[in-house]
């Protein structure tokens, strides 16, 4: 593992620990109720996890849409805009504990599915998940039935099942008694994603994560991340071959800014965006 990858792994581990700082919750089987819970964390992390000390931005967004609370909607959208405009999908590569888990699972020796036209097509599904399950369905259900349903969390999100569902359901008690068909289905989804992550790099992030889809919209304009200098690039395709994501060019909407491609570029056309360093070609 290179020096940079080691640094990235350290940041990922630190974030996973920080998001789950309420260790007492795992012991007491309850959740943190302090003021920090009103602040959205940048990565996908269920706020019903016993360890969670912040709010999940996607869960909060669905609640804001379905509760028709303008204050909450503006607050969550403002948080997401700021995370996106500063970091873009760098959040996925550095600040998401579920991304870290999938990367670690992918290290298990096994045959790996290489990226192809199929995986590239599948990478578009996350935008459908964002539009359908996170925005439209909660909105339609709240207008039609007047009920608040966080559809993505309820029907698809494996993070909530793993961090919250399993923590509360395993070990008996009233939560275990309430589990039904839905919990079985969600466990199935979680199992598919966990097993799939061994064979397919970041299967959930690449194909299904609505938060990644949202941050992808900001990637080109974000302050930090990776950028390709088109005036230097010879379009040799080495970066695309090295990258495990379905990118067209480093820094595009699929790039999680891991930086693996930088050292492989034969003409040094790829670099990290650094707003604090003035470059000669900045006036171009």
């Amino acid at each position: 593992m290179g020096k940079h990858n080691l640094k990235r792994r350290f940041i990922q581990l630190f974030c996973a620990a920080l998001y789950n700082a309420n260790l007492e919750g795992f012991k007491e089987r309850t959740i943190y109720k302090g003021d920090g819970k009103g602040v959205c964390v940048p990565g996908l992390h269920c706020y019903s996890c016993p360890g969670a000390v912040g709010a999940c931005p996607i869960g909060s967004l669905q609640n804001a849409i379905s509760s028709k609370s303008p204050g909450m909607l503006f607050y969550v959208l403002g948080s997401l805009l700021l995370f996106g405009v500063f970091l873009g999908r760098m959040v996925c590569g550095y600040l998401c504990p579920f991304g870290l888990l999938q990367e670690l699972l992918h290290k298990i020796p096994s045959p790996k599915l290489k990226k192809s036209r199929v995986t590239k097509a599948l990478s578009k599904v996350k935008y459908v998940v964002l539009a359908g399950l996170v925005i439209l369905l909660p909105l339609v259900l709240s207008i039609k039935n007047g009920v608040s349903v966080p559809s993505f969390c309820k029907y698809l999100c494996p993070v909530g099942t793993m961090e919250g569902g399993l923590s509360f359901a395993v070990g008996g008690g009233s939560f275990a008694e309430q589990t039904g068909v839905l919990f079985g289905v969600k466990l199935g989804i979680l199992a598919v994603i966990v097993i799939g992550a061994v064979f397919i790099y970041r299967i959930f992030c690449r194909f299904l994560c609505p938060l990644g889809a949202l941050y992808a919209l900001f990637n080109r304009y974000s302050l930090f991340g990776v950028v390709t200098d088109q005036t230097v690039c010879t379009a040799c395709g080495k970066c695309r071959a090295v990258c495990k994501e379905d990118i067209h060019l480093p820094g595009d909407h699929e790039c999680i800014a891991c930086g693996d491609c930088i050292r492989h570029c034969p003409v040094n056309a790829i670099r990290r965006k650094n707003p604090f360093v003035k470059r000669k070609d900045d006036k171009k």
Partner: peptide
């Protein structure tokens, strides 16, 4: 959002266990 009570509303939602979110 903060001025309109967005932080408080988020806190109110996040400090209770969301059974739907965790699949129960």
């Amino acid at each position: 959002g903060i001025a309109e009570g967005g932080y408080t509303a988020t806190l109110q939602k996040a400090k209770y266990i969301c059974l739907e979110c965790i699949g129960i």
